[in-house]
Design a protein around this nucleic acid. Sequence first.
RNA 1: GGGCCGGUAGCUCAGUCCGGCAGAGCGUCUGACUCUUAAUCAGACGGUCGAGGGUUCAAAUCCCUUCCGGCCCGCCA
Length: 596
Amino acid sequence: MSEDGDDDTGPVAVSSPGDEDGNGDDRYAFWADEVADAVEARSPTEPVVIKGGISPSGVPHLGNVNEITRGYFVAEVLRDRGWTVRQVFTTDDRDPLRKLPRKLADLDGNIVDLGDVDAGALGRNLGHAYTDIPDPFGCCDSYGAHFSALIGASADLLGVPIDVVSTTELYESGRFDDVVEHVLANRDRAREVLGQYQDKVDADYAPFNPVCGSCGKITETVTGVDIDARTVAYRCTDIEAGERTIEGCGHEGEATFREGKLPWRFEWPAQWDVLGVDFEPFGKDHAEGSWPSGVDIAENVLGTDPPEPMVYEWFTLDDEPFSSSEGNVVLVHDVLETLEPEVLRFFFAKDPNRARDFSVERLDQLVDEFDRAERLYYDEETGTDDETRRADRVYPYLFDLDDVPDDALAAGDVTVDPAAFDHDDPDHRRQRRTFLDETFTDRVRLPYTFAAVLGMFDDEAARLEAARAQNHVTDADPDWAVTDAFERVALASEWATRTDNEYNYSVQRGSAPAVDVDDETAAALDELAGFVADGADGEAIQGEIYETAKRHGLDVGDFFAAGYRLFFDDDEGPQLGYFLAKLDREFVVDRLRRER
RNA sequence: GGGCCGGUAGCUCAGUCCGGCAGAGCGUCUGACUCUUAAUCAGACGGUCGAGGGUUCAAAUCCCUUCCGGCCCGCCA
């Protein structure tokens, strides 16, 4: 993983509690198993600490969620091996706001344009720490607190337990005092080490950025350090932020170690040290930048061991890079309106080494892939050995008791409250696994695109009827499984609406689409209209469509197409007979007669 | 300039670390079910594994070179 020539990421020796991945085949079916082995090889003390973190600079998008979910899978594997794990998430909220994002989001996850909030007020806060900037929505203590709350909510939505740790809080509480003192007391060494990685480090460089006592900006020019008093003297000078310069106010003053921050290259290793981090995944951007220097700083400035690393590739959103500042974002909140949480977790369980596109257009493919993995896990389908091994290994970690209906839990004699599920409690874990392997085998999944089709029936009974007709639901299925399965209809419908794809049909109520029908088809339509007018249920109408077409010597497919054209102005649609039965009869009859 | 990750069927990707007959799903095509309408089922088509060289009895897999794509070496997942 680390490619640094001279560090000591030792050989991976398998050890410790309940090692259980040796089934005669020692290849890794799941990347998290390999990482867990490496973490165990460090002989960590409990709780094992797994970290992630971001700056709360704006909307926490799906890419940011890697920082939560990648660590989660490793945490879960370690917990299954008997380890107690703490997953922390640092919100780097003392970082300064460098650039105004184009889009923001309220606490419910609704995206709003910058122009819809007080952009001027935000603009005046460039250069200030996120926790010192008022929340543009007025609902949280600060800008930083607002977006930290959103990322915390994203984790909750995915059922991942994290301790959110505010970096500002680490400074203000004094937890960082000792490490800041150490860095500043050894600032020559710090300069020397970081200087190997960054050209801008010169003789004047001081590894601390005080908050200006006058204008409140994070400043860079330290003019003196008093270790005993735990203060630094500074002058508030201009700072560079991308192409623009944020002007300093010129104020000269003194700041304590709690009134400022370490530069990122030092702050990250300081977090490892203070929080005792054993494993941290990070994006490819850090792999060649802050990671190598962080290792060096940890070992040679702080004198601590860096955590086990893991680099993950970035995602794109419909082939475009995610960008909080550019506004190309999608929140977990949004995604969960179209996907079950287990499917989204599945996306994050894929190989981190591979760049992936989160394609909204092709969400059905992702869901199908998940469904297949699930069937492989339950031995309801056969696949290649590799596919099966992967499914067996990965699927249990996608499941969360909170995602299934209460009566399902009751049916499985689950006594733990899903909302109070303790990932470190062996009994809770056992109950979850037992439920998964026993009760949940009765679950029902409607294929995603079929669920999208069902979305056009606004009537519950009609949906059930159609699903039964296709044998997706049978009398043998427990009620909870049927209820649960139909949850997918709302998700798939939302997807169809958002992408406006071929499942987003809408009945052309206003006026009949222009349809040219030949005489024979016209006669058949009239006859069908008569049948409908006499009153018939969906199944009867469906059958009659075939019969009518045959009587008139019409191709059944063409006749259906004529029907779809009349009602949807499209060549295809839902099962027509069932669908027409659910519309008001007079309208259907008139439309079939091309009279309205 | 230096580095990281990828390139395998039309599409999405497993397989590469640890060499052993090139795989899956979707799509396409054909056929069947005397109701083909997200159909379903059966079958078929589909690949110089980016390219070249090397090691080997044997290479998608290991080594060297090279091309293409994404990214990093300010801040960023």
